[in-house]
Measured scan of single mutants.
Amino acid sequence: TRVETATETAWISLVTALHLVLGLSAVLGLLLLRKQFPAHYRRLRHALW
């Protein structure tokens, strides 16, 4: 049972790390898009919101 708990903890930390990386890359991508293609960014924002 101890090994299972350790594996679960590892999976949870892995998933958390993946979510963090995905969130950060999404934010960075949006910032880059905003900087380089303001028109595209505006259109995207209108489409999303």
Score class of each variant (00 low, 15 high):
T1R: 10
T1N: 07
T1K: 11
T1A: 13
T1Q: 13
T1Y: 15
T1W: 09
T1V: 14
T1D: 06
R2I: 14
R2E: 13
R2N: 13
R2V: 14
R2K: 14
R2Y: 14
R2F: 14
V3E: 02
V3Q: 06
V3K: 07
V3A: 04
V3F: 05
V3H: 00
V3R: 04
V3W: 05
E4K: 10
E4L: 12
E4V: 14
E4R: 11
E4G: 08
E4S: 12
T5W: 09
T5L: 04
T5A: 07
A6V: 08
A6N: 06
A6P: 08
A6F: 03
A6R: 12
T7E: 10
T7R: 10
T7H: 13
T7W: 14
T7C: 09
T7K: 07
T7G: 07
T7P: 15
E8N: 04
E8V: 04
E8I: 04
T9Q: 10
T9I: 11
T9S: 13
T9R: 11
T9Y: 08
T9D: 06
A10Y: 09
A10E: 15
A10D: 03
A10K: 01
W11P: 00
W11R: 01
W11S: 00
W11N: 04
I12R: 09
I12Q: 07
I12W: 01
I12L: 11
S13F: 15
S13V: 15
S13A: 15
S13I: 15
S13K: 08
S13D: 08
L14D: 08
L14Y: 04
L14R: 01
L14A: 05
L14V: 08
L14F: 06
L14P: 03
L14E: 01
V15Q: 08
V15I: 13
V15Y: 10
V15W: 08
V15D: 03
V15E: 03
V15T: 03
V15F: 09
T16I: 10
T16F: 06
T16H: 03
T16C: 09
T16G: 02
A17E: 01
A17P: 01
A17T: 08
A17S: 07
A17L: 10
A17M: 11
A17Y: 06
A17F: 07
L18E: 02
L18C: 09
L18W: 04
L18I: 08
L18A: 00
L18Y: 02
L18R: 07
H19K: 05
H19P: 00
H19W: 14
H19I: 15
H19S: 15
H19D: 02
H19A: 15
H19N: 13
L20Y: 01
L20D: 06
L20N: 03
L20Q: 02
L20H: 06
L20T: 10
L20E: 07
V21G: 10
V21F: 14
V21R: 04
V21Y: 01
V21T: 15
V21Q: 03
L22S: 14
L22I: 15
L22Q: 02
L22N: 04
L22A: 15
L22E: 00
L22G: 14
G23R: 07
G23P: 00
G23A: 14
G23D: 03
G23T: 13
G23F: 14
L24K: 06
L24P: 04
L24S: 00
L24H: 00
L24M: 11
L24A: 05
L24D: 04
L24N: 02
S25Y: 00
S25V: 10
S25Q: 03
S25G: 02
S25T: 13
S25E: 00
S25N: 12
A26F: 14
A26P: 00
A26G: 12
A26H: 01
A26S: 08
A26C: 13
A26Y: 04
V27P: 03
V27H: 05
V27R: 02
V27W: 08
V27G: 06
V27A: 10
V27Y: 04
V27E: 03
V27K: 00
V27D: 01
L28D: 01
L28P: 03
L28N: 04
L28A: 05
L28R: 01
L28W: 01
G29Y: 05
G29D: 02
G29N: 01
G29Q: 02
G29F: 15
G29R: 07
G29A: 15
G29V: 12
L30G: 13
L30R: 02
L30A: 13
L30C: 14
L30H: 02
L30M: 12
L31V: 05
L31M: 12
L31H: 04
L31E: 05
L31Y: 03
L31T: 08
L32W: 11
L32D: 09
L32M: 02
L33H: 04
L33Y: 10
L33S: 03
L33V: 10
L33Q: 03
L33R: 05
L33C: 13
L33D: 01
R34H: 05
R34W: 05
R34D: 07
R34I: 14
K35S: 09
K35I: 09
K35G: 01
K35W: 10
Q36A: 07
Q36Y: 04
Q36L: 06
Q36F: 05
Q36T: 15
Q36S: 15
Q36M: 10
Q36E: 11
F37L: 04
F37D: 01
F37A: 01
F37H: 01
F37S: 04
F37Y: 13
F37V: 05
F37I: 03
P38K: 03
P38T: 06
P38E: 07
P38M: 03
P38I: 02
P38L: 00
P38A: 02
A39I: 12
A39Q: 13
A39L: 13
A39C: 01
A39W: 11
A39E: 13
H40P: 12
H40V: 07
H40W: 04
H40N: 09
Y41P: 08
Y41V: 13
Y41T: 13
Y41D: 05
Y41A: 15
Y41G: 03
R42E: 12
R42F: 09
R42K: 12
R42L: 11
R42P: 06
R42T: 11
R43A: 14
R43M: 07
R43C: 10
L44M: 14
L44S: 04
L44T: 03
L44W: 08
L44D: 00
R45H: 06
R45P: 07
R45T: 09
R45F: 08
H46G: 09
H46A: 09
H46K: 10
H46N: 14
H46S: 12
H46M: 07
A47E: 01
A47L: 11
A47F: 13
A47P: 05
A47I: 12
A47H: 12
A47D: 01
A47T: 12
A47N: 10
A47S: 11
L48I: 15
L48K: 07
L48S: 00
L48E: 05
L48A: 08
L48M: 13
L48G: 06
L48C: 14
L48N: 01
W49C: 08
W49R: 08
W49S: 03
W49M: 00
W49K: 07
W49Q: 09
W49L: 08
